[in-house]
Nucleic acid binder design. Structure first.
Length: 678
DNA sequence: GCAATGAGCGTC
DNA sequence: ACGCTCATTGCT
């Protein structure tokens, strides 16, 4: 079979194509001639197949141009995969920005941003639904509930006037936050622009999607999540691309949703660690949203009950402004919160309470709530959580003698040193642990599972119905009335009218974690649960089992997420951790990471730390044909002042490109500002 | 002295 | 995984 001689398109015969290859040094455009018969379809943003070094590879057309700078002979495009322009100009720019920020390749970011094609779905007739402008015409939005927040009305007005206001919003306890999000989405849609709302999980997605559908109509809203399956997922993604919807609500990767004329991005609960993308180049959805807002000038809201240090830094720099309720409004909305130490003498005399490990105050709060025919929420740590160890006597976290890392029982029995406490940082087994504070040799697991807690509490309150939520059985909501609701963190069901009480157990375990984000994360979990409790004036009580002197406990009791974020940010500045600085983690064998760092043109003020062990038993993903012992994997941290973040990322990208050009296949993982550093 | 063969490399 | 370069080899 010999192919007929091809003719190039008369107009703009050259296509600049980005091949989708895993090699960093090939992260650039290559020029191809467009055959005349493909000219119609070969538009910027379409998927193509090109012959690249002999084999056919996938790519995107980035641009059509008249001439090429390439001096050699150009090949022809092999084919246009489909005329659908899946990579819009806005998303192409965003992909560039994310790749640069995270020292990654555009091919990797594109895999996160554009879902796999589904040919059958693409050829389906376009459903006849109202366009954005039609939807806007008959939408009357009541966003008056935003007047509970200082500048809330001004913020809504700015969106209505098609401006791009940027804010960090701390939702009040008991707030119908999904409803508030739906209102600002509707206001933005009424201004003729579209909205992207990003949420941490499916449950929040359902909540926000139905609130938005109630405000804008079913056809104006599309819900995107990873669990949809390829056909559904691509169908909805295409609907967003083709301008059929005004609001996209989705999980992590929806931050890349290709809506037209973006007016607002909302990220609910930006401290949730589900926002950290686990695939290269490991971008954080919050940062992607900020890059997108920066690039397009759209409005942006980072929201939650608690505030992250990252969000606080944006307010601090003046890039975003506060969206907060006044002190009095907060006080009126929050439950009454008390803290107490989980020490044995505080335990109730009641034998039931003793069996449930409940201090007297907690037991009383629960009993009162149940007597008032209201439900009691009991927050317990997530099941399957790797339990760490603490002193059985004084409950000081058990730490490694060598490196001060947290001790835990190895999860895989039969492994080396099975059964004996092992350091999660350096892997050293400690068969003879002795508490540094009280000298006791006894240890206990810090985490008690939801089921055991449920059992114990059921015995403490005989006759009261007990429901559990968490793991594979997450309850969206529970019926009002006296019951005990045992929930793992993040799975707390909503309840009409709010809970009568919440018991936050094992707080000392959360705070005792050796993680730099432990305090922020703990407050976030506590506030998320406490926000479901009715106001103190209506009898709402929260009992947190933790030392009341701790600043994090104080922040909960006073409901002061901003003050806590403020001091968290100060602390990060003091110990030089993000967001006060930028940090790159380079993981791999000692030889590989040392070689990469040595070949990197580091900014002059870079601090090089390590090699050190990876935190929390993280492992380099297998692959790349490298079968190396995971135990060999180490980490070098590169730390620079904020202003040098861009040059550090560029230098690392250049070094990886040079390394791959030398045909080096040794696996090295580079992460910029990873959420777990060490 | 120069064609024939093959390994290595860039990759439009 | 093609087609180029450049080295080595083998034959005149």
């Amino acid at each position: 079979m010999s192919s007929a001689p091809k003719a190039a398109a008369p107009e703009l015969p050259v296509a600049r194509v980005l091949p989708l290859l895993p090699l960093p040094h090939l992260d650039r455009e290559f020029d191809y001639l467009v055959p005349a018969e493909l000219s119609e379809d070969a538009n910027p943003g379409v998927r193509v197949r090109i012959r690249f070094a002999g084999r056919l590879v996938d790519g995107y057309i980035v641009e059509r141009v008249a001439t090429s700078d390439h001096t050699g002979k150009l090949g022809f495009l092999d084919r246009v995969v489909s005329p659908e322009r899946v990579l819009t100009a806005e998303i192409a720019t965003l992909v560039d920005a994310v790749a640069h920020r995270y020292a990654g390749t555009r091919a990797d970011v594109l895999r996160l941003a554009v879902p796999p094609r589904h040919a059958k779905v693409e050829s389906e007739p376009v459903p006849d639904v109202p366009s954005i402008s039609t939807a806007a015409d008959h939408t009357v939005v009541d966003a008056s509930a935003w007047d509970r927040y200082t500048h809330g009305t001004a913020f809504v007005d700015a969106l209505a006037a098609a401006r791009g206001p940027r804010a960090v919003w701390q939702a009040l306890p008991g707030e119908d936050w999904a409803g508030r999000i739906a209102e600002i989405a509707a206001v933005t849609a009424a201004s003729g622009r579209s909205v992207v709302v990003v949420v941490p999980d499916q449950r929040d997605l359902d909540r926000v999607a139905s609130a938005c559908q109630a405000a804008l109509g079913d056809d104006a809203v599309v819900a995107l999540s990873a669990g949809l399956g390829p056909a559904k997922r691509y169908r909805r993604w295409l609907a967003a691309l083709r301008r059929d919807v005004s609001v996209v609500v989705g999980t992590r990767s929806a931050v890349f949703a290709p809506v037209q004329n973006l007016g607002l991005m909302v990220l609910w609960d930006d401290g949730d660690d589900g926002y950290a993308e686990p695939r290269s180049p490991y971008p954080h959805a919050r940062e992607v949203a900020l890059l997108r807002a920066h690039g397009t000038g759209c409005g942006v809201v980072l929201a939650g009950h608690a505030r992250t240090a990252e969000a606080e830094a944006l307010v601090d720099s003046g890039w975003a402004h506060d969206l907060l309720a006044s002190r009095e409004t907060v006080r009126a909305a929050q439950p009454h919160i008390v803290a107490l130490a989980d020490s044995d003498h505080a335990l109730a005399r009641d034998p039931g309470a003793r069996a449930a490990r409940l201090p007297a105050i907690a037991f009383d709060a629960a009993r009162t709530a149940l007597k008032n025919d209201t439900a009691v929420l009991v927050q317990v740590p997530r099941g399957g959580y790797v339990p760490s160890l603490a002193c059985a006597k004084c409950r000081n976290p058990a730490r490694c003698r060598r490196c001060n890392g947290p001790l835990a029982l190895p999860s895989a029995p039969g492994a080396d040193g099975a059964g004996s406490p092992t350091c999660r940082w350096c892997g050293a087994a400690d068969t003879n642990h002795k508490c540094a504070v009280c000298g006791s040799r006894a240890l206990r697991a810090v985490v008690v599972g939801a089921h055991r807690t449920a059992e114990e509490l059921g015995r403490a309150f005989p006759g009261v119905p007990v429901r559990t939520s968490g793991g594979s059985a997450v309850l969206d909501s529970v019926d009002a009335g006296a019951s005990l609701v045992i929930s793992t963190v993040g799975a707390e069901p909503t309840i009409v009218g709010g809970y009568g009480a919440a018991l936050l157990l094992d707080g000392w375990a959360l705070l005792g974690r050796a993680d730099l984000r432990a305090a922020e994360e703990t407050l976030r979990r506590w506030m998320t649960a406490s926000a479901l409790v009715r106001p103190g004036a209506d009898g709402g009580r929260v009992v947190v089992v933790a030392e009341s002197e701790l600043p994090t406990v104080q922040a909960l009791v006073r409901w002061d997420p901003v003050g806590h974020a403020r001091s968290e940010l100060d602390e990060r500045a003091e110990v030089r951790f993000p967001p006060a600085v930028h940090v790159a983690a380079v993981d791999g064998t000692t030889a590989a990471i040392t070689a990469l760092v040595e070949s990197t043109a580091l900014p002059s003020d870079t601090e090089v730390l390590g090699p050190v062990e990876l935190p929390d038993g993280q492992r380099l993903p297998a692959g790349g044909g490298e079968d190396r012992l995971p135990g060999d994997v180490q980490r070098i941290l590169l730390r620079v002042p904020r202003r040098a973040g861009g040059s550090l990322a560029r230098a690392l990208a250049d070094a990886q490109a040079a390394s791959s050009a030398r045909k080096n296949t040794e696996a090295v993982r580079v992460q910029i500002d990873p959420i777990r550093i060490g």
